[in-house]
Design a protein around this nucleic acid. Structure first.
Lengths: 212, 212
DNA sequence: GTCTATAGATTGATAGAC
DNA sequence: GTCTATCAATCTATAGAC
């Protein structure tokens, strides 16, 4: 019992520190020395508990992306189900809302989630193939679902166009989410905006772009 | 004469190799050994000709961003001038076109420009403060000009909203430009799209978002 | 499970011969 | 200007005592 809980603490400490440092300094930019220092565990603990730095990366991603995607998937499918029930096409704005709102809510509420979302944004552009591939693996099914839903919503647009407009949306969303952690201009600060305000800022833009 | 031209060749070889490798592997992910290997110059040549790895980074950015920003600035100001002459507000779509078209044309035509534009996209999200700060310094005046022009075009929107919609646009644009170098799905491939087609793909999205 | 100590590789930068 | 050789620091990962 005691052993188990202490192990869990060590693993969690490592995961929390990794989440924070990966967001701030990137995967390659974070050394195990700094990481274990922040987590207040021994340098060898990462390799003992996770096997390697890369396995730790996977664990960090998996821990938060799994429940988040579960919520988002449920919300998007509810939009499609509701539309089908009413004998109409789903609305692009509703689909985007079903994806974005839980993302920003999650970012606001969960411990370390702000770091995690920043990390997602960084990972899209990470030069390290490893990082991009691992992320891609976890994100791909969710993106596929969005693609399907959008094809229902916007049947007059080609799959090609929808694909790239979704990419434009992901780029806009995640760039903004991590730039706002970085920027410090008094009159333009949205660092402390709540989830609803951020949705109101971002959703109209993405929605108009998707339908354009 | 001979000495000068050989020096220029060495410096240019280094700049070209750096541009390519920084785009592909990032600044931190590129070692001077690999870089000088690709440039076919001696390991010590970077420090001799540029002083440090960071000074090389600045030189790489400066070489291409200066002429590119000159063109973009001229085009954006021409849109404002024309509108003023006709006694109307500039159109947001025209402003975006004046920024994006030269960017994509440049990307298509100039040697190494595709790498450079990819590198810009990566740098927005680079975890290394140094990289982001240097880029920010070179990009800031151009962004400021866009901000001003957009405030003229969209006077009913607050400066705050315009600022963040421009950020959304930059995120969408540069994410898409470097994801399209990375993606390899036959039916969705735009890797070999020409500049005009890319403008047609991206501009309506950004334009609708800005005006939303 | 936790710790120290260290292997083994790689990094940016530089000194000094040519 | 170009080269070799090397320093000093850093990295991931692991072996072995406790």
């Amino acid at each position: 019992m005691n052993l188990q809980s202490e192990q869990a603490d060590t693993k969690d400490s490592i995961l929390n520190a990794a989440e924070c440092l990966f967001a701030e300094k990137g995967y390659s930019g974070t050394s195990l020395r700094v990481l274990t220092g922040k987590a207040k565990v021994n340098l060898a603990a990462v390799n003992y508990h996770f096997g390697s730095k890369q396995a730790l990366l996977e664990a960090v991603i998996k821990r938060k992306i799994t429940p988040l995607n579960q919520i988002r998937r449920k919300r998007v499918e509810e939009v499609r189900r509701q539309a089908r029930k009413e004998g109409r096409r789903p609305d692009a704005n509703d689909i985007l809302y079903a994806f974005i709102e839980p993302t920003l809510r999650f970012r606001e509420n969960e411990r370390g989630a702000k770091d995690f979302v920043t990390f997602i944004g960084r990972s899209f552009a990470d030069p390290d193939d490893t990082v991009r591939k691992i992320f891609f693996r976890f994100i791909q099914p969710m993106f596929q679902l969005l693609l399907e839903a959008m094809r229902e919503a916007l049947p007059h647009l080609s799959e090609n166009i929808i694909f790239w407009r979704l990419q434009l949306s992901m780029g806009a969303l995640f760039h903004t989410l991590h730039i706002c952690e970085d920027i410090d201009m008094d009159h333009l600060n949205i660092k402390d905006l709540d989830a609803d305000s951020m949705v109101n800022l971002i959703l109209p833009y993405l929605s108009a772009g998707m339908k354009s």
